[in-house]
Amino acid sequence: MVDLTLEIRKTAKELLEKGEAKVVLGWEKGNFPYSTTPVFIDKPEDTERLIWDEYCINNLALYMLDYKHLDGKVGIFVKGCDSRGINRLVQDKQLDREKVILIGLSCPGMKDEKKAKELGPNADIPMAQKCQDCRYPDPVVYDVFLGEKQNKKVPEKIDTSDVEEMETKSPDEKYRFFTTNYEKCLRCYACRNVCPACNCKECIFDQTATGWLAKANNVSNNMFFALTRAMHVGGRCIECGECERVCSVNIPIMLLNKKIIKDINFLFGDYDAGLETEERLPLGGYDYTDPEEFM
């Protein structure tokens, strides 16, 4: 990854020097061996800050929302999940594909930052959950590609064994599981704010005057938040796992997302969001063959 770091810096430098990009988004080292942090480079000399290591986990795609109105192009480094995030924004009409220069990187799977904190400096750090579940480590869209592709054979279908296990539980058990989890939710909205599919200009949860969701933190409000959030990204969630990764209290958020993905696959045919930008979204249009038992 050291060689690639040098290439990353070189590519970013060229883009800025030639004026092809006004700013380049990548990762720089944080204060700990196990941390990196997003960085926004606009001067060629600052490209030395860029790095590529096994902790470059943040999905950078959502930052493109901040550059929607920039006069000029943005260069952005994309792993598999980041590239699907870019497609998400393009398909949701939040981003003009022409405005970004995607520099693809094949992702070896990033390490688990939380585990690294717990286990200490000399431990063998496991791969992050979101990377263990990832089926598209190579970017699905890019303009330039650095390094080599893995062409890793992706499992045909998303692994929903955890969802299936939950489905076998009794309603009481399920209720207990979700209430104990959402009792601890802080409603910090980190899961929402990190999500490339959560790109509404004004979020329903911020419109407190409407009374849709009260600010009071209790399990019923928290579950209303959680379910609404999951439904709003239904059919658009790119499975990047960022929401679960950033949860301040370790709520297994992906379980809900995956349940919806599993149901969509069953009802409307297999669908992986963020692989392309032209096809109609499974929940974004009506088709004569759609099941409608409820009508």
Binding site: T37, P38, V39, F40, L62, Y63, D66, L186, R187, C188, Y189, A190, R192, N193, V194, T208, A214, K215, A216, V246, S248
Partner: peptide
Amino acid sequence: SKKCLNCGACTYVCPTCHCFDISQE
């Protein structure tokens, strides 16, 4: 501020942050 997501995680876990809002049910 560029990288900040404006979530409330840092302030909600902070032992000194003390801002509150008043509302009603």
